[in-house]
Amino acid sequence: MPLVVIEVMPKAEILDPQGKAITSSLARSGYEGIAEVRMGKRFELTVEGEIDAARLEQLQEIAEETLANSVIEDVVGIHVMDQS
């Protein structure tokens, strides 16, 4: 069955305290030159049947209406990983 990966990131203008905490932890651990870490979400959806235009439209809707909240997040990628 095809696997669809949907990636969601907090909007650039929204302060990401989790990313900030990770950034400063990396600096404390001695990793130099990491200017910023932002943390997002990756969803893996196993889909029944073929990925056709109608399915892609449905996935787009799922991504934008449920998996992401458009006030604070952007859907940055919808990838079909395995179409065998």
Partner: peptide, 8 residues
């Protein structure tokens, strides 16, 4: 929307 507090 409501998001994580500024200082985490």
């Amino acid at each position: 929307a409501l998001v994580r507090n500024e200082k985490g």
